[in-house]
């Protein structure tokens, strides 16, 4: 059963809020549902505090704080019984911190639940797993998430990177338009930016004179930076991934884990959980691949009755295959 962690953000900046939103989605893929609460009276388990905001410092000094506190600041902050993260906070770091602190502090977290019970306050309902229906363009700050949003909602988006570099996304046809050079485009893939929805009229006039290029040209690079393990398209970890076509791997950004997963899916449709169990590849990387598959329209997640995790036999030759793979990795003759 999924657990629900209540997190109280205190004095966070807009960007930190966005990162928290991404992390919340990510954690739901790790069987931890997070509810972001607005008020200290809602018995939060974890407080995520901006150590550079005055409300943040006030909170840390107040008598009744959450049992687990994470402080974000430019220089590491010690004391207050808090875990410190440096600014700018990264998705991976925040996800890891929440997950670890949640696991390590179960005793004090359970105490919160008990106190809550004695105050006879209704327990918060576990929230359903997040789907992306509610995600708005304005919340999107990386190109990968913009590609996912454009694709899953079949939208027209403008993604503005730094230095005003704009990329126009046509989610219906899986194409993008930009006048950028390869290098500048690469930078947009790897930096934060801002997305904005465009109506068909403004979109058509914006793309005038620009060449259409496939999402495939940018998705692989963008996925390395963005969306950060966010499981997209309402998919669940135990949905079966069905491959519609083998993705076209680029020569650059080719990740061996991705080619391996893709190859496995050509033989047997499997869930992310099954892939994790049978390949040993980290869930983050698997989700990254799934997201690319959604953007490229080559993968589809289908709900399934079958919940148990199948162990692949690799045919009768599992041991042999592993030995050959090992031999190839060492790299034979050059």
């Amino acid at each position: 059963m999924k657990q629900v962690a209540r997190i109280l953000p205190v004095g966070l900046e807009q960007q930190e809020r966005t990162i928290l939103g991404v992390v919340v989605n990510l954690l739901s893929a790790f069987d931890l549902d997070v509810e972001v609460v607005d008020d200290a009276s809602e018995a939060p388990h974890i407080a995520l505090v901006n150590g550079e905001a005055s409300v943040g410092m006030e909170y840390l000094h107040s008598p009744d704080t959450a049992p687990v506190k994470i402080v974000i600041s430019a220089t590491p902050l010690s004391g207050y019984g808090a875990h410190s993260l440096s600014k700018p906070v990264r998705v991976q770091a925040l996800k890891d911190a929440i997950f670890e602190l949640w696991t390590q502090n179960q005793e004090s977290i359970q105490q919160v639940e008990k106190n809550l019970g004695s105050r006879s306050k209704a327990k918060p309902q576990p929230r359903p797993a997040k789907t992306e229906a509610g995600l708005r363009a304005e919340q999107v700050q990386d190109l990968m998430l913009a590609l996912l949003l454009a694709r899953s909602q079949q939208k027209h988006l403008l993604f503005s990177g730094q230095a005003g570099h704009g990329v126009l996304l046509d989610g219906l046809h899986g194409q993008y338009y930009s006048g950028l050079s390869g290098e500048a485009m690469e930078a947009v893939c790897q930096q934060q930016g801002q997305a904005q929805a465009l109506g068909p009229g403004p979109f058509m006039s914006a793309i005038e004179g620009l060449e259409a290029k496939p999402f495939n040209d940018i998705a692989w690079s963008a996925a390395r930076f963005g969306a950060a393990g966010r499981l997209y398209d309402g998919a669940e970890l135990d949905h079966t991934l069905v491959m519609k076509a083998f993705p076209r791997f680029p020569r650059r950004h080719l990740r061996p884990e991705h080619t391996r997963v893709a190859a496995m899916l050509t033989k047997t449709p499997m869930s992310l959980r099954e892939l994790e169990a049978n390949s040993g590849i980290a869930m983050d990387v698997l989700i990254e691949f799934y997201n690319i598959g959604v953007v490229l329209d080559v993968l589809q997640a289908k709900p399934t009755e079958q919940r148990e995790i199948r162990k692949l036999s690799g045919g009768k030759r599992g041991g042999l295959l592993a030995k050959i793979a090992k031999r190839l990795k060492i790299g034979g003759n050059t």
Binding site: G314, G315, L321, A322, I324, A325
Partner: peptide, 20 residues
């Protein structure tokens, strides 16, 4: 190219490993 041919064979092995 070694690395390209390696990729082909590694991928073939991955396909074979996914037999249920």
């Amino acid at each position: 190219k070694d690395e390209d041919v390696n990729l082909l064979v590694q991928t073939l092995l991955a396909v074979l490993s996914a037999e249920v």
